[in-house]
Amino acid sequence: MSDLENDRRTLPNSELSASARGASLDQVLQISASLAAAMNSVIEGKQSVVRTAITVLLAEGHLLVEDVPGVGKTLLAKTLARSIDCTVRRVQFTPDLLPSDITGVSVFNQDVRDFEFRPGAIFANVVVGDEINRASPKTQSALLESMEEGQVTVDGTTYSLPRPFMVMATQNPIEMEGTYPLPEAQRDRFMARISMGYPSARSELDMLDLHGGISPLEDLQPVTDASVVSSMIAAVRQVHTAPAVKQYIVDLTHATRSSNALRLGASPRATLHLLRASRAHAALAGRDHVLPDDVQQIAVPVLAHRLMPTGETQMARRTTADVVNDLLQRVRVPSPTR
């Protein structure tokens, strides 16, 4: 579909592959390919969603999966978690969920006569937060520090979270009953929001065969482990970003702030997330450098959920994704300056 996949530099036999990038980039390519293959074996016909999920994983981001109930949001999150041999926690967000259920709580231990910290659900490599917008904003906010800083502070004591650390949250569209909209600060901490979408008729037919009996998720074997993922993340950090591309990213986020279709533009954190996601996207294409095309292809998932449309935009039934696409058309790719 994307011509990035047809790039001769992504082809395994290309003579360029060995010389143009380090061995770890090869590893990234290989492992992410097997990761994608494993996930695709469970989730039918959602290659691009799977790809974005892996991109976010490699970019050290958190993923928000938003869609109507029953399209496989939780399955996606669980599949990614199950494919990696690491600690996984699943939190079902309900209206009565308390912040301490997430972060953990200090309880008085009679034996040692002292308070003892009981880690909450957040202490895992992969945290699957199901239906995150069914919890009260208070509980949702408990995630803030952990997501941004990879640590939890309870009763004045700061506890580090294991690495890699990724939150995959699913949510129903905010118009649904019994949902609380995610606060902006919370949304901004998710690197990307993806939408599953309904499967195609054919995929749905395949799904009936696949999931009719025993769930394939049960048979899924992890293809990698946490340490490998950490090294992959380190390799992705090494992907070169030319000044022109950085300029382009900044231009894009600036354009969201000055756009009169938006009430709230992208934050500097969004700029940073866009850069990291672009790096991961490039690495997934086997490149050791970021192209403006990488930025363009990852921009909508990374930016759309953070922006707030104006009333007019909403009235015109334009989504923030439409606005971002418009900006991608309008903002010039800067010529390289050396």
Binding site: R8, R9, A20, H240
Partner: peptide, 18 residues
Amino acid sequence: LGRVVSTLELARYARPGS
């Protein structure tokens, strides 16, 4: 044309000196 563009991308966006 693909080769021209690939080389151009390397020239513009890859690490200098390749």
